Simulated assay, not measured.
Amino acid sequence: MLRARDAMDRSYAQPLDVPALARIAHVSPAHFARVFRATFGETPHRYLQRRRVERAMFLLRETERGITDICFDVGFGSSGTFSRTFRDIVGQSPRAYRKQAAATSVPTCFTMAWSRPSD
């Protein structure tokens, strides 16, 4: 499971599916999905979404790149899915998050700890 999770952390922007991750973990896809959730407390799909959103949060805070560019850079296939997922995990839109981050003059380490998605 750790090998698959590490692969997800490394290649979060690449298209990854359960069968490919199961091959990395050397188990069947059904077993992988069950054990991953039991081990890490969330489905492989949700874990990958959260990793992508965490990276997007960093890019929104630290760069001036467009939101659509960031969406595709972190591995989302559409800006609608990105915005909906971002709002579900963070609690606000990417645009609102960027605006709030720009208005806050707190050191980055505190901002990262405070804004880490809990879902």
Rank of each mutant, 00 (worst) to 15 (best):
A113E: 14
Y12R: 02
D73N: 04
Q49M: 09
M8W: 02
Y47L: 01
A22F: 02
D73L: 15
A33V: 03
G91W: 06
A113R: 12
A7R: 13
P107H: 08
A103D: 15
R87M: 08
H26L: 13
C109P: 01
L60G: 00
V53Y: 03
A103W: 00
D69W: 03
A103G: 15
A38E: 15
T39V: 13
P107L: 11
T63I: 08
H31D: 11
S78M: 03
R46E: 13
V18C: 07
D119W: 10
F86W: 09
T81C: 07
V27D: 07
A113Y: 02
A38Q: 14
R84E: 15
M8S: 00
P19W: 04
G77R: 14
A113V: 10
H26W: 03
P44A: 04
F40S: 02
F32C: 07
F82M: 10
G41D: 04
M57S: 11
C71F: 05
P15E: 06
F32L: 06
Q100W: 02
D17C: 08
M57C: 13
R5I: 09
E64A: 13
R37C: 06
R95H: 12
R98S: 01
T68E: 15
T104D: 15
F36T: 07
T63H: 02
R52A: 04
D73T: 14
V90S: 01
Q92T: 15
D69N: 08
D6V: 10
C71G: 13
T108D: 10
S11A: 11
T39A: 14
R55E: 13
S118C: 05
F58P: 00
S28N: 09
P117R: 07
F82A: 09
S78R: 08
A22I: 07
R55C: 11
E62M: 10
A4L: 06
A101I: 01
R84W: 04
E54L: 15
R98W: 00
R3E: 12
R23K: 14
R65M: 13
R84D: 14
W114N: 09
D17I: 10
W114C: 09
D69P: 00
Q14A: 14
D6W: 06
D17V: 08
L48M: 04
I89D: 02
D9F: 03
R61E: 14
V18A: 14
A25Q: 05
F86A: 08
A56L: 06
